[in-house]
């Protein structure tokens, strides 16, 4: 079956996030960017499905400016077969991303769409579910296990207080949680090979989607800074402070 994986270019998770002095957003100038960690897990899962013989083609799609092609190439180096870049410099919010992905789904007709559960920049946790609703597909969110079984896929989900397994009709949307797998690193030969894999570029207009942001960010601020507290001399003092000063035990 064909698997479509959506990936997002975000700030690298190890970079210290700095709010711009004018409070219009987060400073992304000269900051290391990378594939969203949950999207890496999505790519890895697709590659494992192909290695198991369940998937026969992996298409990776990313939405955003030209630079997103770096993340598409990374996914191709990890084992995806071809890429689609929906190129736009506009602010694409979750609903529009879902509409663009829906258009891609209609063209590609994948049996399974895998996305990260959320991106570590906007932290919305929306796009996969919105895509599922717009396409009328079943959804298995926050997946820690994905087992394709004929016309169905069983997805074990990370839910509050435990795990829940659901059986979904295919085609379906799966969003990844951390425990699903541990992504591999791309080898140098695969990185070289990825450069030759096909990558189609299209615009939102080509897909018939108009980008109309519904949410306006009025300001972005740094969180209230925590003050460093005191050093205690020993464990006895620590327990005393916790009990009598902070009153948390």
């Amino acid at each position: 079956m064909k698997v479509l994986v959506a990936v997002k270019r975000v700030i690298d998770y190890n970079v210290k996030v700095r709010v711009k002095p004018d409070n219009t957003g987060v400073d992304l100038a000269n900051v290391k960017m990378a594939m969203n960690p949950f999207c890496e897990i999505a790519v890895e899962e697709a590659v494992r499905l192909k290695e198991k013989g369940v998937a026969n083609e992996i298409v990776v799609v990313s939405i955003g400016p030209k630079a997103c092609q770096e993340q598409i190439r990374t996914a191709l180096a990890l084992g995806a077969d071809r890429g689609i870049h929906v190129e736009t410099d506009e602010d694409v919010q979750s609903l529009e991303a879902a509409k663009l992905l829906k258009a891609v789904v209609e063209k590609e007709e994948p049996q399974l769409v895998i996305l990260g559960k959320q991106s570590i920049d906007s932290d919305n946790n929306q796009t996969g579910q919105m895509l599922a609703a717009l396409t009328g597909m079943a959804q298995g969110t926050f997946a820690s296990e994905v087992v394709v079984d004929g016309e169905k896929v069983n997805v074990t989900r990370e839910v509050d207080g435990g795990l829940m397994t659901v059986s979904l009709k295919l085609p379906a949307v799966v969003t990844t949680d951390l425990r699903l797998n541990e992504p591999r690193y791309a080898s140098l030969p695969n990185i070289m090979k990825a450069k030759k894999k096909p990558l189609d570029v299209m615009s939102p207009a080509d897909l018939g989607v108009e980008i109309t942001p519904r949410l306006t960010t009025l300001k972005v601020e740094a969180p209230a800074a925590r003050q460093a507290g005191v050093k205690v001399a020993d464990v006895a003092e620590l327990v005393d402070k916790l009990k009598n000063e902070a009153k948390v035990i």
């Binding site: 700030i11 987060v26 979750s94 932290d123 919305n124 960010t217 009025l218 300001k219 969180p223």
Partner: peptide
Amino acid sequence: AQVSDIIRVESEDTFVRPIYAGNAIATVK
């Protein structure tokens, strides 16, 4: 649109939510 994970209400259409895992706080209309 959906506004996810709000931590404060500023008005009937304006809300405060953490982004970047709480490393920044956005006010969204």
